[in-house]
C-alpha cells in the first residue's frame, strides 16, 4: 500500500473483531448461549490528508475508539492495515508510534501521584527527548495550556479539565505530525471545552499544521472543527465528506424543534419526526417543507405535553446522521 505525499494516514480494509463469550450455566457449567463475534470495526477504508482535521463522528459503540486504538497500535487488526506518515502499523509499529501523539479517554491516564511536570518529563523520556529538550518542551506546553502555576502540583489535585490539558500536552510532547484525539472534550465543563476546541483548531491545526483525527459524539464539535467528517455506525463508515456537503445530503427542509415536558405524538406530521430526551425535556425535530403549515397540527397534537419552546432551524449533522443510519448519536433509535 503506497502513501501519496499529500496523505498522512491511509487505512485499508481494517477489521477488528472481539469474541463475546457465551454465558455458562452457574458460571462454570455448559454454555447456554453460544460465543458471539462482534465486528467493532468492519472493513474501514480511510484517507486523511496532511494538515487535515478529520472527524470520526458516531454514537457510543460505533467503533471510533477501536479504530483509533488500531491506528495507534494498541490493538491488532484482524484484517487490513494502515500507514501513518509512511510507516505500516503492523510491520513497523514503533516507527508508526514515533509519528503519533494520542489522547485516550478516561481520567486516569496520568500518574496521579506525580506532578503535571513529572508526568510530562516521564513521557518525554519514553519519546526519546533529552533532558534539556524535555525541559524546554514542557515549559512551552505548560505555558500555552495555562498550567505554569500548577505544574509542580500532583495530578490528583487537578480538576478534570486541567488533567485533560496535561493529557493533550503529553500527546504533543514529542511534537508529532499526527494526532489522534479520542473524545478530547468528554466530561469537560463549557469553558474548558471551548479552550480545548479552540486550541485544537487554531493552534494545532491551523498554526502548526498537524494532521488530526478527532473522535467525538458531539455533532457541534465535529461541525465547528473538522475539515472532513466520517460518520461511523456499527463499525462501518457510512459517509465521508465536509460538514457542508454532508448536510446537503438530506432534503433541505425546515426543521421545527419542539421542546416539551412529557411526551406528545407527532407521528404523521411533516416529513419525518425525531425525538430525544435531555434532562427530562423531550426534544422533537419535525422536518417539513414549510413549517408554518404544520404549526397548528403540532399544537393540537401536543395536548398531553406542555410545550416549552418552538424554534425553526436548518438540518444539522445529527439530522444527517439519523437520515443515514436511522439512529441518534446518543445511540437510541427514536424515530417516530
Amino acid at each position: 500500500m503506497d502513501l501519496a505525499p499529500e496523505h498522512a494516514i491511509i487505512a485499508k480494509g481494517v477489521v477488528k473483531t472481539f469474541r463475546k463469550k457465551g454465558r455458562r450455566k452457574y458460571g462454570i457449567g455448559p454454555k447456554i448461549t453460544p460465543d458471539e463475534l462482534i465486528y467493532a470495526v468492519n472493513g474501514v477504508d480511510l484517507t486523511v490528508r496532511r494538515g487535515e482535521l478529520f472527524g470520526l463522528l458516531g454514537p457510543n459503540g460505533a467503533g471510533k475508539t477501536t479504530l483509533v486504538k488500531c491506528l495507534s497500535t494498541l490493538l491488532l487488526p484482524n484484517k487490513g492495515t494502515a500507514i501513518i506518515s509512511g510507516h505500516d502499523i503492523i510491520n513497523d509499529p514503533i516507527a508508526a508510534r514515533e509519528c503519533i501523539g494520542i489522547t485516550t479517554g478516561g481520567e486516569r491516564t496520568l500518574y496521579w501521584k506525580l506532578s503535571g511536570r513529572d508526568n510530562l518529563r516521564y513521557f518525554a523520556a519514553l519519546y526519546g527527548l533529552s533532558s534539556e529538550e524535555a525541559d524546554r518542551r514542557i515549559s512551552y506546553l505548560m505555558k500555552i495550556m495555562g498550567l505554569e502555576d500548577r505544574q509542580y502540583e500532583r495530578i490528583e489535585k487537578y480538576s478534570t479539565g486541567m488533567r485533560q490539558k496535561v493529557s493533550i500536552s503529553r500527546a504533543l510532547i514529542h511534537d508529532p505530525p499526527v494526532l489522534l484525539l479520542d473524545e478530547p472534550t468528554l466530561g469537560l465543563d463549557p469553558s474548558f471545552s471551548r479552550f480545548i476546541r479552540s486550541f485544537i483548531k487554531k493552534d494545532l491545526n491551523q498554526k502548526q499544521k498537524k494532521t488530526i483525527i478527532l473522535t467525538t459524539h458531539y455533532m457541534d464539535e465535529a461541525d465547528q472543527l473538522c475539515d472532513r467528517i466520517a460518520i461511523m455506525n456499527e463499525g462501518k463508515i457510512v459517509a465521508v465528506d465536509t460538514p457542508e456537503v454532508l448536510k446537503r445530503r438530506i432534503p433541505q427542509d425546515e426543521v421545527l424543534e419542539v421542546r416539551c415536558l412529557g411526551h406528545a405524538d407527532f407521528s404523521g406530521i411533516g416529513q419525518r419526526v425525531y425525538a430525544d430526551s435531555v434532562e427530562g425535556v423531550t426534544i422533537y425535530r419535525i422536518h417539513a417543507e414549510n413549517v408554518e403549515d404544520i404549526m397548528s397540527q403540532v399544537i393540537q397534537a401536543a395536548h398531553s405535553a406542555k410545550i416549552l419552546s418552538m424554534n425553526v432551524t436548518k438540518p444539522t449533522l445529527e439530522d444527517v446522521f439519523i437520515h443515514l443510519t436511522g439512529a441518534r448519536l446518543t445511540g437510541e433509535d427514536n424515530e417516530q
Binding site: T73, I94, T104
Partner: peptide, 14 residues
C-alpha cells in the same frame, strides 16, 4: 491498576 498502561504502550519503545 494506575490506568496508564495504554498511555505508555503508545510510546515508541518496545
Amino acid at each position: 491498576w494506575y490506568g496508564t498502561l495504554e498511555s505508555i504502550f503508545v510510546a515508541p519503545v518496545p
